[in-house]
Amino acid sequence: THFTSQQLQELEATFQRNHYPDMSTREEIAVWTNLTEARVRVWFKNRRAKWR
C-alpha cells in the first residue's frame, strides 16, 4: 500500500503519542486518513518493528 504524505503525517503523529493505539483509536485514524482499520493496524505493527 502506498500512503500519501498526509496519511503518513497523521499516522506518524499518532505513533509519537501512542505506539499501541486501541481499536477505537485505529478506527478514528482510518476515518481521518481514508484507510481501512486493517491497513492502519498493519502500519502500526510494521512501524513498531522499525522503531525497535
Rank of each mutant, 00 (worst) to 15 (best):
Q16L: 11
F15Q: 01
L8I: 12
K50P: 04
R17W: 12
T25Y: 07
N46M: 12
T33P: 01
S5D: 12
R47F: 04
R39A: 15
T4L: 05
R48Q: 06
P21S: 02
Y20I: 01
T1R: 11
N46R: 15
L11T: 00
F15D: 00
N18S: 05
R52L: 15
N46G: 07
T1C: 12
N34C: 07
Q7Y: 04
Q9C: 10
F15V: 01
N18D: 07
M23D: 05
K45I: 13
K50F: 09
T14E: 14
V42S: 13
L35V: 07
T4G: 03
T4C: 05
S5H: 12
D22M: 04
A38L: 14
Y20N: 06
N18F: 06
R39W: 09
L35Y: 01
K50R: 14
Q6R: 11
R17P: 01
Q9D: 11
T1Y: 13
F3M: 09
S5A: 12
W32T: 14
N46V: 15
Q9F: 12
F15P: 01
R47V: 04
M23C: 07
R26E: 01
I29Y: 03
V40H: 00
R17E: 07
V42F: 10
Q7A: 06
A13S: 11
E10M: 15
Q16I: 08
F3H: 03
V42E: 12
N18R: 02
V31H: 13
A30S: 05
R48W: 03
R41Q: 06
D22E: 03
V40G: 00
E37V: 06
E27N: 11
A38H: 14
Q9R: 12
N18Q: 06
A13Y: 10
T25M: 12
T25A: 11
W51M: 08
L35N: 05
H19M: 14
E12A: 00
V31N: 12
W43T: 00
K45V: 10
E12K: 03
R41Y: 06
A13W: 11
L35G: 04
A38Q: 12
I29P: 00
F15S: 01
E28K: 14
L35Q: 07
E10A: 14
H19D: 02
I29F: 03
D22V: 04
E28W: 12
T25D: 08
K50A: 14
Y20P: 01
Q6I: 10
T25W: 06
R41P: 00
V42R: 15
N34K: 10
R41A: 13
T33D: 01
K50I: 14
H2M: 12
T14R: 14
F15K: 01
W51K: 06
E10F: 15
F15M: 00
E12Q: 02
T4Y: 05
R48C: 00
D22R: 05
R48D: 02
R26L: 08
S5R: 14
K50Q: 14
F3N: 03
S24R: 14
M23A: 09
E27G: 06
A38E: 13
H2S: 14
S24Y: 08
R52S: 10
I29K: 01
Q16A: 10
L11W: 02
A38D: 10
S24M: 10
T14H: 15
N18M: 08
T33Q: 07
F15I: 01
F44H: 00
R39P: 01
T25E: 11
V31F: 13
R17F: 09
N34L: 06
K45W: 09
L8F: 05
L8H: 07
Q16Y: 08
E10L: 15
Q9S: 11
R48M: 06
H19F: 05
V42T: 13
W51E: 12
R17N: 09
R47K: 05
T36D: 08
L35M: 10
W32D: 08
E37M: 05
F44R: 00
K45H: 10
H2T: 10
N46Y: 14
A30M: 03
T14L: 15
L35H: 04
H2R: 14
Q7S: 04
E37C: 05
R47Q: 04
M23L: 12
D22Y: 04
E12T: 02
A49S: 08
W51Y: 09
T14W: 15
A30G: 07
Q6V: 11
V42M: 13
N18W: 07
W51D: 10
A13F: 10
D22I: 05
V40C: 04
H19E: 03
T33G: 05
S24G: 07
N46P: 00
R26P: 02
